[in-house]
């Protein structure tokens, strides 16, 4: 009696969340797919016409698309490389006992809480500026020619900025995982004469593998969506040098008002993200059962 009652209640209680998320997923996504087959200009509403696969054809054959895919990969892989390697090293360092550890830890994780527009502008103006930036001053002091970071290496500069924001995330997760490492196992290995490196290689690293997987996958989801950092630093330029897939879609849709073309790009982005999501869901699902 009571259980049936509870179960019915439970169904009603879960319904609003499910319904909301279902609508949020299905309605706009359905519209994106539909628009992607239309000639649809935001400035001339009511003049939509069937386009077939033309939007896809134009979007994919646009030279900017190839650049955008390359830039997206460069950005995602670059940030992943910096944050996983750097994050592991930082986590190992912060796991050692030292004076003022707690405060140092707070300083390391702080960048994660800085809003993207602030970090992008601070790096652009106060650090990377070719004349008045701090890096330029350091370069001159050491006798080098200052580098025009965002002008000469726009994509690498953005990668550095985004990596700075995500390094704390990787560090924090890996540090949490590190602290659950069985100390006895380590001590036993030490007793058997294992060196620091071989302990890391054979005990610590395998223990971190799950956390590393989670870091890589979650960061990938967010990194595919990098937008604000590009908008306020380079606006995707010079040319398409720092345009990622998301930014290309934004320009196509909201700056050139080509809703059809942008939607075709959107569908492509969703497909790409789904490939990643598939692996993420599997990894997290596995952990749930454990």
């Amino acid at each position: 009696m009571a259980t049936t009652h509870t179960r019915t209640a439970a169904r009603w209680m879960a319904a609003p969340s499910i319904l909301l998320l279902f609508m949020w997923m299905i309605v706009p996504l359905g519209m994106t797919v539909y628009f992607s087959f239309l000639h649809y200009n935001l400035l001339s509403p009511g003049e939509e016409s069937w386009a077939g696969l033309m939007n896809y054809e134009f979007f994919v054959t646009d030279p900017a698309f190839k650049d955008a895919v390359f830039n997206t990969l460069y950005l995602v892989l670059g940030v992943l490389l910096i944050t996983t390697v750097g994050g592991t090293l930082l986590a190992l360092l912060l796991d050692q006992p030292f004076w003022g550890q707690g405060v140092a830890r707070l300083m390391v994780i702080a960048p994660f809480f800085v809003m993207p527009t602030v970090s992008a502008l601070v790096w652009k103006n106060m650090l990377m500026h070719p004349v008045n930036g701090l890096f330029a001053w350091i370069a001159r002091t050491l006798g080098f020619q200052p580098v025009d970071w965002l002008g000469a290496y726009p994509l690498t500069s953005i990668t550095i900025i985004v990596a700075w924001q995500w390094l704390p995330f990787a560090t924090l997760i890996l540090l949490t995982a590190l602290q659950s490492l069985d100390q006895e196992q380590k001590e036993a290995a030490e007793m058997d004469g294992a060196g620091a490196f071989s302990i890391f290689r054979h005990i610590t690293l395998p223990h971190l593998s799950r956390a590393l997987t989670v870091v890589v996958l979650i960061e990938t989801i967010f990194l595919l969506n990098v937008f604000a950092e590009i908008l306020v630093t380079t606006n995707g330029g010079p040319g398409t040098a720092s345009t990622n897939l998301g930014f290309l879609i934004y320009m196509q849709g909201l700056l050139q008002f080509d809703a059809g073309g942008a939607s075709a790009g959107g569908v492509i982005a969703v497909i790409l993200a789904n490939v990643v999501a598939f692996f993420l869901i599997r990894a997290i699902g596995k952990n749930l059962e454990a």
């Binding site: 999501a277 869901i281 699902g285």
Partner: peptide
């Protein structure tokens, strides 16, 4: 329940640009 949770999570993975145009129009 587990599938439901997984499905909820999957909605989070939809890239924002994928639905930018319809959301903007709506």
């Amino acid at each position: 329940t587990k599938d439901l949770l997984m499905w909820m999570l999957s909605t989070k993975m939809m890239p924002a640009v994928g639905v930018l145009i319809p959301i903007y129009i709506l």
